[in-house]
Amino acid sequence: MIPAAFDYVRPASLEEACHVLATSGEEAKVLAGGQSLLPLLRLRLAYPSVLVDLGRLPDLHGVQDRGDHVFIGALTTHDEVMRSPVIREHVPLVALATATVADPAVRHRGTFGGSLAHADPAGDLPAVALALDCVFVTRMTGGQREIPAADFFVDYLESALEAGEVLVGVKVPKLGAGWGFHYEKFHRTAQAWAVVGVAAAVRTEGGAIAEARIGLTNMGSTPVRAPAVEAALRGAPSAAPNGNGSSNGAHDPVRDACGEAADDTSPPADLHATSDYRRHLARVLTYRAVRAASA
């Protein structure tokens, strides 16, 4: 399809970007890779009057090791994220999930911040950000704020960003020793969106799960945590009863815990899955993710 006309602005500084966004009203949209926005423009489902292209703002780009956390600039591409040694070493869950995003072409254009700000519950990164308790660093004219992930994803395709507010980057806390990670994505073709995805971070101690964080992709209007599973996993033996993690055999407390993965969720129904199938997948995939993360 062919987009409707729009103005295009490529600010030279973050200040200018904030200013343009603040003065252009709600019809202004940020272009930060465009892998989700451009299809909407082409289908004429979005009619922004101004596109503010952040592509040339160096401040928003790159990955920094900041001691207790890793800072990922909003415009860092998925490809850069999944290849970053800092991310792979300190916050590997981010790299694991990013490697499952779409295909190489999309990953070279699409950006970490763009994907998060789009707030698509079917996106792979929002659930990861939620599971890791990331903090979103934003700027606006005359100010900045930090938004915890739990407050950032407001609704379907809606983030907490206000008009005139730009996502600068994301602080990803390092979880330290003893943690294992896994992102379990279920999709129908390699390039397809997640039907359901599970981001798991598990800390084991003395043969038991000491702490777990579970984020779910595409199980509601926003990414969601699975607090019931997190609570139930605490203290469960980290090794599978028959030793190989397969689903056969003896009673498995981890399996029981993961059976609560779909509690309090309202997963969507669409062409690729009904809601109850998504609930089922959430349980199965959470189990697999936890097993893989604690292996």
Binding site: D155, T274, R279
Partner: peptide
């Protein structure tokens, strides 16, 4: 205001959840 989202209907074709 935007931080108060509307009610979401029970998703279609779904089994009912036990109240937690």
């Amino acid at each position: 205001p935007p931080n108060v989202t509307p009610l979401t209907p029970v998703a279609p074709a779904d089994p009912v959840q036990e109240p937690s």
